[in-house]
Design a protein around this nucleic acid. Structure first.
Lengths: 145, 145
DNA sequence: GTAATCTCTCTAGCGACTAGAGCTTCAAGA
DNA sequence: TCTTGAAGCTCTAGTCGCTAGAGAGATTAC
């Protein structure tokens, strides 16, 4: 019926320190404790952690996940917020894909220009990085590349 | 001929604290100083910082950029390393695009399933996150989404 | 000369963990 | 029942690439 943090970790694929971190961040409620002060979890916590895991896999921030959990805990509220959070996440993902594609094109061009056989003085990779004029596209920074 | 850190920031689009951070990280050499201990930069530093900026925009890590700078400073070395660093970066970008596309598909499906008009108990967004079985694809975590 | 703007160093914070120290508890076998 | 080894506990600090702020000193334009 009740299981340890290690069991919970195995069942969800979330690492033990990460579970404790989620608890500290308030995403998981403080669980019951054994006589010796060890955490003991039940089905509800398992499901919540799976929810968090799934949302993290989809790229939601812990802040966004907090919002989603808040809604889950109040089943009578409008789900407008949930939809908006998900839509924002989708928009962010699409934006990131767009930027990464520009990067990919540029990087492919740069690496194609150099076999790696020569000497660094003549290296097209280094030359391209030194001189933005050699670029075909603009590429804005992408965080977390 | 010589300019301040603020001028350098304006000419490269890199923020002042970031320039100091790069110096601390060893990506930029410690520059000359004015009588009053302020940093004074010349053309060489400007070019190096533009190189760094450009590489950062393409998603290279500071560690990778260190490696590239090392090669730039030794023009007689083989550029194999540079090519490999760039190729690794390209691979990483492509990998990230692949994962983001899977996420995009899943998020689009999830958000399409909910108009936001209902109540959170019946919300398809929340249901999908709670139950991975509703997913059509596997989606591994992507760092930095 | 004075005021406004820069610049200096230093420390701390972000997000989402991850690693390690030093200790205690638990579960299984002898 | 005892022992042993794995697993758990709390706490602090580190990762990456910055960013923000405090409180001081330097520079520049008028």
């Amino acid at each position: 019926m009740f299981f340890s943090i290690g069991d919970l970790a195995r069942r969800t694929g979330v690492k033990v320190p990460t579970i404790r971190y989620y608890e500290q961040r308030g995403l998981l409620d403080a669980p019951l404790r054994s006589a010796g002060n060890q955490r003991r979890y039940g089905q509800a916590e398992l499901e919540r952690l799976r929810f968090i895991r799934h949302a993290r896999d989809l790229g939601f921030s812990l802040g966004a996940i907090s919002g989603l959990i808040e809604l889950q805990d109040h089943p009578d509220r409008s789900c407008e917020t949930a939809t908006r959070i998900a839509q924002d996440q989708l928009d962010a993902v699409r934006q990131k894909i767009r930027r990464l594609r520009a990067l990919e094109a540029e990087l492919a061009r740069i690496t194609d220009g150099c076999t790696g056989a020569g000497v660094s003085r003549e290296c097209y990779v280094l030359a391209s990085l030194a001189d933005h004029e050699l670029c075909e596209h603009d590429h804005a920074p992408v965080d977390g590349v």
